[in-house]
């Protein structure tokens, strides 16, 4: 058997077992904080994987992905706000009551994130390269300022939730149950992405990354495919936002801030772009590093910055590439 392949399977297998058993391990170790930490890792991993779909596979370097995370979170926050307030969500053109049910709130949040991604993508994808980076950044910032200006929903201070969303039979307020929900969401999204990447659709998107002009001359209207890919990534980010809002029971404009988008890019590149497991490893590495370093110094960013430059200049393949001995999807 190919040694690289078996190592890959080993990494995946061990990782999955650890994740499945984590709440038990945490209980045995007597450190329930681990459950919270790893829930966060799973959520960020989900956001990073969705970003990798557009950056790693589609070659669309978006510096505004946190906007869609933020939108997902704000849908949860705003609906919760109206539930707590007892007010109607909308009174025109028809009376719309708010909801606290996972089965209503979450699909709505995902749908709204995806639609916003479609809208922003429709304009941004008219450009490429540097302009695309700057435009996605600018649109994300626009939504950030919009969130800040929403005085009703707390403006700068954001919204505090009284409780997590409600699911029949399962109590999401329980951190272990919530952890497993996060894990299931991530695994489902990974599986869907894996199918997607190797499907006809995925091929078109990957081809457009390598040579878009050539794809057009073969007969592919690449714009449409890239736009749909952008929206799918927006949906994934929206789901991550939903989970973030539920985990911390708090939503604020900082979720949409552009440094948040930057962090997601860091996770993707650190873990290994153009692979699906890479971003998961990247999210884990980044958050664990933050956890460890911040225990020693509050100024840990002063080390993180040069570290990133080092990674870019000398360790381009990312953790996953390094582990499995394969590179990122090369040109």
């Amino acid at each position: 058997m190919n040694p690289a392949l078996s190592l890959r399977k080993f990494v995946l297998g061990t990782g999955l077992v650890v994740l499945l058993l984590l709440p038990i391990l945490a209980t045995v170790a007597g450190d329930p904080y681990l459950i919270t930490l790893f829930s966060r890792i799973l959520i960020y991993a989900l956001a990073a994987v969705s970003l990798d779909l557009i950056i790693g596979y589609g070659g669309m370097v978006s510096l505004g992905h946190a906007a869609f995370v933020g939108i997902g979170a704000y849908v949860v926050g705003i609906l919760a706000f109206h539930m707590q307030d007892g007010s109607a969500l909308a009174s025109w053109p028809f009376e719309l009551q708010s909801s606290n049910a996972v089965l209503v709130v979450w699909p709505a949040a995902i749908l709204i994130s995806a639609s916003m991604a479609a809208l922003i993508g429709a304009v941004s994808l008219r450009t490429r390269g540097m302009q695309f980076i700057m435009i996605t950044l600018a649109f994300a910032q626009m939504l950030f300022y919009l969130a800040v200006s929403l005085e009703v929903y707390g403006g700068d201070d954001g919204i505090s939730l009284w409780s997590r969303n409600e699911l029949p039979l399962i109590d999401l307020g329980d951190d272990r149950a919530f952890y497993y929900i996060c894990l299931i969401c991530l695994l489902i999204f990974l599986y869907l992405s894996d199918r997607l990447v190797f499907s006809r659709f995925g091929r078109v998107v990957r081809g457009a990354k390598v040579n878009e002009l050539r794809m057009q001359s073969l007969g592919f209207p690449t714009y449409r495919y890239k736009l749909v890919c952008f929206s799918i990534a927006g949906a994934g980010a929206g789901l991550a936002g939903v989970l973030m809002a539920n985990q911390s029971e708090f939503v604020s404009p900082s979720l949409l801030h552009w440094t948040h988008s930057g962090e997601l890019i860091v996770m993707v590149l650190l873990g290994g772009m153009g692979t699906l497991i890479g971003p998961v490893l990247g999210a884990a590495a980044m958050l664990l590093m933050e956890e460890v370093l911040s225990a020693y110094t509050e100024h840990w960013m002063v080390f993180l910055g040069p570290f990133l430059i080092f990674v870019v200049l000398f360790a381009k393949r990312g953790i996953y590439g390094w582990l499995s001995g394969t590179g990122v999807e090369s040109e």
Partner: peptide, 28 residues
């Protein structure tokens, strides 16, 4: 200088690293 001709993504990441560095340095 080491980033000329490289992928824009590398440039974004490295200069993002610079921002983190400078912001924290001014705090220090």
């Amino acid at each position: 200088r080491r980033l000329y001709g490289r992928d824009h993504l590398d440039q974004v990441l490295a200069t993002f690293g610079l921002i983190l560095f400078f912001n924290e340095l001014t705090v220090i």
